[in-house]
Nucleic acid binder design. Structure first.
Length: 474
RNA sequence: GAGGCGCUAGCUCAGCUGGUAGAGCAUUUCCCUUUUAAGGAAAGGGUCCCGGGUUCGAGCCCCGGGCGCCUCACCA
């Protein structure tokens, strides 16, 4: 049971009133002929007299988001998926019976209206209703019109309300959708195949992260929610799918923050015969395209910064970056110290898109060693606004080397490092069948969308972010 | 996990030094045929997050708990 209040009681009474008059509060088959934006666009430049000369009738459907009544006339606004448009109601035009029906309508209800167009005294394009139907009677009130819904917790828990009353929220998710569409186009054009690999994996792999565990009853086996699709995607390259990409959810059993949600969306792609330098170039092209398609420009505003996605992006080795941004001599540092100092002192300074290359091999168990310096891997990460956005490298395709790396990981796992990788014998077998020279990359889509929508929290780009459940009273 | 801040009407918020719980919007009723935060008149609406404690008396003070946000830690 949900909690009741006088608002809901009053509106449930209205539902009963409708029923007692033989009107369904939840009817079907009410078809609009137009959308709000179609009408607003098409008649944008038409003056009042021109509109009133039109014989055309327009049927619209949407949610009433605004209502102002004057006794025998009223203005209301309805919102459909495209836009908002004003409706004018007049008793004389609508007739007594329909006007009585209108009196039953509250803000929040869905209605269907038909009528002609005109302009009000203030030149607002408005539909003059000649017919009106209730499409869905609603019983719970929406937040008030000025302040809307501010409470962050309620916004996340009741995203459906947030989407109705906070337009910028809808806009962010439209942008997110555009990003996904654009990146599919981008890889499609380049002959990449979109694939789907298991989210439930018997052996978690592909990233250093603590997995969620679940259980399959019939098989009586534990399964892990994937922390990355990487090892499966490379199996596909072994199988001859030379260019693959997957965009989908990864799950990591870690803390939650403005940068972390337990389930998040990752793009991973693999290209045979490419190397990590090719991928840096590809990444530059991709980000330029995504920024342009979502913001109309390669320059975007993010918090206090202006970020320019125009390529090329500076490339620094990790050691060069430490040298440039700190007072440390990178050659005198241990591998661990180097990485620590990089993370603590350098990352936050990488505001404009910057590639950092040559990561220590010890920290890159799936990456191919550099031919000149086996201590480092041919790997890069892309940082923007101090955040890691992408991670790519030449794939390690030497099965013996990979087996050694797995063994080191398993050792770490046994020492209590819950994020270390497991030994994946089948993956080694796949490498024995043969992975052509390949480079691969992962891009954190949520974090990228944060940048493109100027969102400070990952929760603002995930429709239903993970929250602790509240005590249910039901 | 630690610290800080917050939780009061459907929504947004006020509530002083502990003394009968408030406003705006919204709702209900009445008036109102071109409004743009429409206007006028009246009315109703509260588990002050939860549980203890102190007190003659707690929204306010103390203790414990819940949920959220932020910072840090953790986390590629």
């Amino acid at each position: 049971m949900t909690e009741e209040n006088t608002y809901i009681e009053q509106r449930k009474k209205k539902v009963e009133e409708l029923r007692s008059e033989g009107i369904s509060p939840y009817p079907q088959n009410l078809k609009p002929t137009h959308t709000a934006s179609e009408i607003l666009k098409k008649f944008d430049d038409k003056k009042g007299p021109e509109l009133e000369g039109l014989k055309e009738q327009f049927a619209l459907a949407g949610r009433v988001i605004f209502l102002r009544s004057f006794g025998k006339a009223a203005f209301l606004k309805i919102a459909d998926r495209t836009d908002k448009i004003q409706i004018y109601i007049e008793k004389q035009i609508l007739g007594d019976e329909q006007f009585k029906l209108f009196k039953n309508i509250d803000v929040g209800d869905f209605i269907w209206v038909q009528g002609s167009l005109f302009r009000t005294k203030t030149e607002e394009l408005t539909l003059k209703a000649t017919a009106l139907k209730i499409a869905t009677k609603t019983v719970r009130p929406l937040p008030e019109k000025w302040h809307g819904l501010q409470d962050i917790e309620t916004r996340y828990r009741q995203r459906y309300v947030d989407l109705i009353v906070n337009p910028e929220v809808k806009k962010a998710f439209l942008t997110r959708s555009k990003v996904l569409q654009a990146l599919r186009d981008f890889f499609g054009k380049r002959d990449f195949l979109e694939v789907e690999t298991p989210m439930m994996q018997p052996i978690p792999g592909g990233a250093a992260a603590k997995p969620f565990i679940t259980h399959h009853n019939k098989l009586d086996m534990d399964l892990y929610l994937r922390v990355a699709p990487e090892l499966y995607l490379k199996r596909l390259v072994v199988g001859g799918l030379e260019r693959v990409f997957e965009v989908g959810r990864n799950f990591r059993n870690e803390g939650i923050s403005t940068q972390h949600n337990p389930e998040f969306t990752m793009l991973e792609f693999y290209q045979a015969y490419a190397n990590y330098e090719d991928l840096m170039k590809l990444t530059e092209e991709l980000l330029e395209e995504l920024a342009t398609k979502t913001n109309g420009s390669t320059k975007i505003k993010y918090e206090d910064a202006e970020i320019n996605f125009k390529s090329p992006y500076p490339r620094l080795t990790m050691k060069e970056a430490v040298k440039k941004y700190t007072k440390q001599d990178p050659n005198k540092l241990s591998t661990e110290k180097l990485v620590n100092i990089f993370e603590e002192e350098v990352e936050s300074k990488l505001i404009q898109p910057t590639f950092i290359t040559q990561f220590p091999t010890d920290f890159s168990p799936l990456a191919r060693k550099n031919d000149q310096d086996p201590m480092v891997a041919d790997r890069f990460e892309l940082f923007i606004y101090g955040r890691e956005i992408a991670n790519g490298f030449n794939e390690l395709n030497d099965p013996e080397d990979q087996a050694e790396r797995f063994k080191a990981q398993v050792e770490a796992l046994h020492k209590g490092n819950e994020e270390a990788m497991h030994f994946d014998a089948d993956y080694i077998q796949a490498l024995e069948i043969g992975l052509p020279p390949t480079a691969g990359e992962g891009i954190g889509i949520d974090r990228l969308v944060m940048l493109l929508t100027n969102s400070s929290s990952i929760r603002d780009v995930i429709l239903f972010p993970q929250l602790r459940s509240k005590e249910e009273k039901s």
